[in-house]
Design a protein around this nucleic acid. Structure first.
Lengths: 340, 340
DNA sequence: TTGTATGCGTTATCAT
DNA sequence: ATGATAACGCATACAA
């Protein structure tokens, strides 16, 4: 391994000079700087990030806390997309990513300790139980953090528009003439609560009364449960004309059930998803869904965190809203044509 | 930040004693060891991995090189599953993961340099262009590496059974009475070559002549292309009774095309996928496919790499084969019943 | 069993 | 403009 010392010997200058030259310090002559740089390249010098981190107390390493509760964390396209864009953005800025988790190896550390152990300059937190004391400890620590889809006091959060997404869906479905709407929603999380509120609010505004039996639970990303919920909805005396699913993936379960019962999607019953994953736009009929801008979520959270790290004085914690959009597919029937 | 020095002061022992006590060195009395440990806990001591790495020349950090060529790298379930299990396995052993990439920030480093920069103890390489000189440089360097689905001389590789997977499919399909088989295969990679060889070998063994027009190209994970290829196949004078797709995801494109043409899957035409992703088993009809054991791929590659790192003398580079399995879904019709 | 001293590779302060 | 030196936090060889 070639070090600054090696280069200094070769060049006949001091170690300090080499360091400065390589870091483009202003107090080094152009002449020596170029000589040193050339020699460094020639000798195949590679800086040592650990030594640098130790000295500067900055690792250029960003922690990512994704808790894979459903064991579908990373395989959930929403999150893998976020991770991808987040990764791209931090790398553009010279940072690397480290996954933060509990109890690495025999050392048992909690999230905060793990992050400190790796000297993370900051941490991005997503898809976790935000009530977990270990999560709270990390977020309320001195380490800069950015949370996704959850707001902590005086911390930066990047929010998908869960507070209006379902409202948008309801409005659209209403505009297509639907009045008997059913909602299948995911397990009780902060995100789910927002979505429910948005749903009921929109219904209220439109003067829609939604009977309780039209609102069912099916865990996110669980086609079996959504199929079950679908079956229940189909048995209702007053069968809904449109079913909204907790996510695009869950819709697959619903689709199976509907088709098993001989119903044609759109023609016989309308459906809407949530997420707008790639798959939803590949399937035929193309799913009508509300697309969350996962790519922007990842990018923005990275940008905010890096600002927080590099300009701590001038950066205030803030709440960034990332808007989604309706994707108009072919699964919602227009009931207006004959009806009105 | 509390350091060993701080603890040593509090305990009235030397810094060295603290270090040894915390590392369970044999030459420290139980008494002092427990005192030191208690104090360390009380003071909230967290070891500093960068200092440790610098001193020991070992970062407990494993690089992961995934090149997201199709920009579907991480969102490809096969790879996200591998990453997930790989992550679990390394973490069990006290390692963390760092993504290796080109040109982090303004420093422009290649893969090898990036890995050295982060002091990676080893690197796992998957889903890349193995002809890329930068990839080759990394793999042939002194850094322990494990490759997935590609063999380098004198390096450990974890191989999915691409050399028999398609053969297994052909045998199964043949056993169901199919003789006119079509194959849509992915772009030209080492994996594809193996799969093609396996396909033709199995056909030869069974005495099947496959006309060239039955073998078409459609890039992996590209439903549009596979839909197009499907259309071409359907136009053939001698229409195949069974189509094998490059992967489960591509099958969706085929499904759309088949259904658009009014064909019922299984009943009118049989289809087979490849990968066995979760989605394939959720869709109805359930897809018949060859499941790659992605979870085992990740786990094994991590295990092998860690052996290579920790027991370099006694560990030989080896080739690990991970077997897949046929998943018998409902998309291949049994033609024997009336035929024979 | 415990302590002293050194150095890992780097940056940064202060002389020169 | 350049160099000598200390320090970052830790593990370890060696001395006591």
């Amino acid at each position: 391994m070639v070090t600054l010392k090696d280069i200094s010997k070769e060049c006949g200058v001091s170690l300090a000079t080499v360091s400065k030259a390589l870091n483009n310090a202003s107090d080094i002559s152009e002449a020596t700087a170029s000589i040193v740089k050339a020699k460094a390249k020639e000798m195949g010098y590679i800086p040592n990030s650990t030594a640098r981190a130790l000295k500067m107390n900055k690792s250029h390493n960003i922690g990512v806390l994704f808790v894979d509760t459903t064991s579908s964390g990373l395989t959930h396209e929403y999150f893998s997309t976020i991770l991808n864009s987040l990764k791209d953005e931090v790398e553009k800025n010279g940072y690397d990513i480290t996954f933060i988790n509990k109890g690495i190896g025999h050392l048992d550390m909690n999230y905060y300790e793990h992050a400190k152990y790796r000297q993370c300059d900051g941490v991005i937190v997503a898809s976790v139980d935000f009530k977990d004391p270990d999560v709270i400890q990390l977020i309320e620590s001195e380490i800069p953090t950015v949370t996704l889809d959850y707001i902590f006091n005086n911390r930066t959060a990047v929010m998908s528009d869960n507070d209006i997404g379902l409202g948008k869906i309801v409005e659209y479905v209403y505009s297509m003439g639907h009045r008997d709407i059913a909602l299948i929603h995911g397990e009780n999380t902060a995100v789910t609560q927002k979505r429910l509120a948005s749903f009921y609010h929109a219904c209220f505004e439109l003067g829609l009364e939604i009977p309780d039996e039209n609102v069912l639970l099916a865990d996110y990303h669980n086609p079996k449960e959504s199929a079950l919920a679908t079956r229940k909805l189909l048995k209702l005396k007053k069968r809904p004309t449109c079913i909204i699913y907790p996510d695009d993936y869950s819709f697959i379960g619903g689709k199976n059930e509907l088709e098993a019962q001989g119903l044609k999607i759109c023609q016989d019953i309308s459906v809407v998803g949530y997420d707008g994953i790639y798959l939803s736009q590949i399937l035929r009929p193309k799913l009508t869904t509300y697309k969350q801008n996962a790519e922007a979520m990842g990018r923005q959270s990275a940008k905010e965190l890096i600002k927080l790290i590099e300009k701590p004085k001038s950066t205030l914690p803030s709440i960034i809203n990332v808007c989604g959009e309706m994707l108009h597919g072919d699964t919602v029937k227009n009931l207006n044509e004959k009806g009105e």
